[in-house]
Design a protein around this nucleic acid. Sequence first.
DNA 1: GTGAAAGCGCTAACAC
DNA 2: GTGTTAGCGCTTTCAC
Lengths: 371, 371
Amino acid sequence: MFPGTVAELRDYFLLLLPGIITFIRHKKVFMQKHQTTIIDIARELGISKSTVSRALKDHPDIKTETKEKIRNLAMESGYRPNMLALSFKQNRTNIIGILVPDIERPFYASVISGVQQRANNQNFFVVIFQSKDSYVAELNIIQTMLELRVCGILICHSKETVEFPHISELIKKGVPLLLLDRANEEHEAHKVSTDHFVGGYMIGEHLALQGYKNIAIIGGPPTLQMSNLRVDGCIKALKNAGIPVKKNAIRYCYFQRERVLSAANELLDSKNPPDAFFCVHDRAAIEISKLLEFRNIKVPGDIGLAGFGNEPMSSFIHPSLTTIEQHPTRLGELAAEIIIQEITSETPIKLQNQIISPQLIVRESTVKDNG
Amino acid sequence: MFPGTVAELRDYFLLLLPGIITFIRHKKVFMQKHQTTIIDIARELGISKSTVSRALKDHPDIKTETKEKIRNLAMESGYRPNMLALSFKQNRTNIIGILVPDIERPFYASVISGVQQRANNQNFFVVIFQSKDSYVAELNIIQTMLELRVCGILICHSKETVEFPHISELIKKGVPLLLLDRANEEHEAHKVSTDHFVGGYMIGEHLALQGYKNIAIIGGPPTLQMSNLRVDGCIKALKNAGIPVKKNAIRYCYFQRERVLSAANELLDSKNPPDAFFCVHDRAAIEISKLLEFRNIKVPGDIGLAGFGNEPMSSFIHPSLTTIEQHPTRLGELAAEIIIQEITSETPIKLQNQIISPQLIVRESTVKDNG
DNA sequence: GTGAAAGCGCTAACAC
DNA sequence: GTGTTAGCGCTTTCAC
């Protein structure tokens, strides 16, 4: 019955070998000690797994003492529900997908940080994606997210994105969706954003108050709502102060370094050079700051300079930069809260459109009268 | 048979209501059109689902023409494997978990960006976690990752972390694991890091070459290997150049602003003040830069200043900061490649310990002879 | 108040 | 070369 000779033993071993190999391979993948399941508990207590399932979610049908017993054992044995099984059953994960143009930009890093912190508090996970400002990438990523069966999507559009078929699609599908900061007005999705118009207005007002009379504006892509709102806000404030802005003094530079520099140079070399720049992005302002230093133009003595976004760097350049704080972390937190509410609520919640008030940060680059 | 009067109709409707509500609720969650499954294809073609499954993974058993038929239909019908089912079956997702102290710090943002890009190329997802430099958080997060059944883990320890039971645990469990940049030497896991020692050495050498003779070093927490290596590298280079570093000139400031400032002040006010500072972190160097400006001490005229990390800001402060570039994006990409290799390979791969060469970035803050 | 059983989509061992 | 079947952990309907 059991092999006797060495040869028999060898043959017996060889016979078993494939099985052994399979066994080892299986074990290799995850050698963790068997995670307690609902079935283990049921077997241990001599009851059915449905009872255990119900007890663990506090179903009213189950007797209190049964619940007690089950919950105790669950505790002792370190039972943790298997998320994979849950997700599979419900055809939906507890993963929130977030798409931003570029994680490395401080604004998005902060937004993500906020989202992540709030999400983790509530047992949600955050998967990140970057479009690197490519529209095609944006489309693909959204498909990928759907395949992953994320339970909610946060999107901050790429700067290339001027059409929104993917967004309409998502809305039609009914996937919980929130548009971050660069939302197109027409979509019926939750939205969280900075009040770009008011931010621009604050800068315009401040520049007017400081006595600047001839302000040039460095915009982003003319198709990007967000950056246009900043421009419009500024123009409105200046108009209110009786300061006209010439068409020619507004330059759309697509957040591109070269365009910013050549626009600035052109303006500076013109017959009627500006006495202040408002850049709708700190990055551009910082570039111009370097340029002015290079051209030996004093800031704020000869010319004023204001940015938008309060990037960490803006307080460290010389002179330090007047700008607008957007509270990106708070933005992220709020976004996470709303999407989680939408996900967990039984019925769709009221459409949110949260606008975060920006804050004017006055620094050296615009304040003439320093003494 | 069918209700006649209005009252009957109403009653009939009320009877159906619960069912209708349930129906709507179910549909609400995800109204997407039914995703084609392997079963649909099998039914359509009048074959079994196993054949379909095998054909789609190019199993040699299946006849070529059968494969053709199946693949065509799969294409047409837009079949996409259900990741949730796959994950459930294999008890493992295609999600890589990454834990860093803080996403908002440029170094980590870049690392994550690198990881994310590489992972997405290979159909992996990246879930992010932040410890905010808390050891307890680090422990919890690792448990959470295990519950999510991530298929691989990338960790960059919090600065509080001086014990590593969780890491040993992970290694014992056999979860694919890679330690990023702050790895403890003794662990048998994959590792990717900057060559901190060489980075420190480069700074030391450079400072010596520039003629600095009395160098103070601002370190991190004395328990953090990474920061100690930077310190040691610098000391070694200085020693090689015949420049002794006094014990008292090495200050461990735990990456804390207040400690950095008080240490710097103390050193500057001492009988024998340093003629250069090496801070193992750009942040600290930037703080000291501000301090020196405030105290009206000229850099690099009166005193030299060097940092580590090449944070974006370091090139924008005045004077711009000499520092070490760590290539964080490349670090992240490499980390992703290694962990994905480990995950996808049948047998465990050779333990990797990749050390990325840093790069000396010489800027104004250390170069005395500028004219 | 509790149990039995089906089923979510897919894989793989086994049968033929 | 292809089909049958069991099973992954859990929820939920239906039966008792």
